[in-house]
């Protein structure tokens, strides 16, 4: 295996770190010097070798540690993975999608042998060797969504499509930006987005829904979303808000570069074959400000974005209380020079 996996934690002593290569391939989400909501959806095609867009399900140096962190979260709170009864078929569709993609994209790490419904799956980084019968849950240690979700970075929501709407009827969610699967499960697209300010009036969700309900098999899409997190914590759930909340108030001008992280979600959307459901993988990438500014273009641009962001959005994204310290820090890396188009480093 060419990839070396970091020995690191996402809680407690927070030893999470990005290698120089991981910084370079970080999915910086701003393609211009300002930010407003948009339906910034594009085809999820292999793009740019080495980038996080190269493969359908990106596996990086954080893979093993992220899966260990997910196991801790699920042991603490098994309700982070739930599936309404009618979504089991979609769970199998999703398991198939991941196993097929990973074994094709990373043959050195993952192998899938199929003989009719008799399947054999090998996941070398996690030391898993599993024979099972496809569509027979009793042959796996847990349901198909949880089984493959424990081996796939990112949160995953399975959306049922009916009545011209999408319904969040299953998911495995342990690295969420402050929303609760246990509370939102069963909601439709407009209901689970109800707390998002401004975007409803802009018609963003109507347009996004129309697009998503027409996503076709074999033509996945993706978009980037972002927020801010203090410490490299994956589990910023509302369930544990009273446990991680105090950390948000530990930012000082001295430590902001090391402790404040930009959190980017690579969201993708796939139509699933047998269930006609959508799977919505939400992959989280974290980068500290001090690592981010090592790419001069990103330092300049991120300063301008956060400086000019409407207060309401800073409030919604939960970093209003630290915003001035963040902007002051980033200002030191903004010499006013022009920035090039696109998200990639110069």
């Amino acid at each position: 295996m060419t990839l070396r996996f970091n020995d690191e934690t996402f809680r407690g002593d927070y030893t999470y770190h990005n290698s120089a290569a991981a910084v370079r391939r970080f999915p910086f989400p701003f393609d211009q010097d300002s930010y407003m909501y948009s339906v910034n959806i594009e085809p999820h095609r292999p793009t740019r070798a080495g980038s996080v867009f190269e493969h359908r399900f990106d596996v990086d140096e954080h893979y093993v540690a992220e899966m260990q962190d997910r196991a801790i979260t699920l042991a603490d709170d098994p309700l982070r993975c739930q599936s309404l009864p009618h979504m089991e078929l979609a769970g199998w569709d999703f398991l198939e999608l991941v196993m097929v993609c990973k074994s094709e994209d990373y043959p050195d790490m993952f192998t899938l042998h199929r003989d009719g419904d008799r399947w054999h799956w090998i996941n070398r980084p996690l030391g898993i060797d599993q024979r099972f019968t496809f569509m027979d849950t009793s042959t796996l240690p847990c349901g198909p969504l949880e089984y493959i979700g424990r081996q796939t970075q990112g949160d995953h929501a399975l959306l049922d499509q009916r009545e011209g709407n999408l319904w969040m009827d299953a998911g495995i969610v342990t690295s969420q930006a402050d929303w609760s699967l246990d509370f939102n499960i069963g909601m439709n697209f407009f209901e689970w987005h109800a707390p998002v300010p401004k975007a409803h009036e802009l018609g963003i969700f109507q347009r996004a829904l129309k697009f998503l309900t027409n996503v076709q098999q074999g033509k996945p899409s993706r978009r980037l979303n972002w927020t801010m997190t203090v410490n490299p914590r994956l589990d910023t759930s509302p369930e544990n808000y009273h446990k991680w909340g105090p950390e948000k108030r530990t930012i000082t001008p001295e430590n902001v570069g090391a402790k404040q992280y930009l959190r980017v979600e690579l969201q993708s959307f796939y139509r699933l074959p047998r269930s006609n459901a959508l799977v919505f993988p939400i992959r989280c990438y974290l980068i500290s400000l001090e690592d981010l500014v090592t790419v001069p273009k990103w330092g300049r641009r991120f300063h301008r974005v956060l400086r000019d962001l409407p207060d309401e959005l800073a409030e919604y994204k939960g970093f209003a209380v630290n915003r001035s310290m963040i902007v002051d820090y980033l200002a030191r890396f903004d010499d006013g020079a022009e920035t090039s188009a696109g998200i990639f480093p110069d």
Binding site: F183, G186, M187, P195, Y241, P246, R249
Partner: peptide, 20 residues
């Protein structure tokens, strides 16, 4: 005001999470 029809309940979130 966020409401779950499945639970028949609104959501309550710790008010002093960041400043106990």
């Amino acid at each position: 005001d966020h409401f779950s029809r499945r639970l028949g309940a609104f959501q309550g979130v710790c008010v002093d999470a960041e400043t106990p």
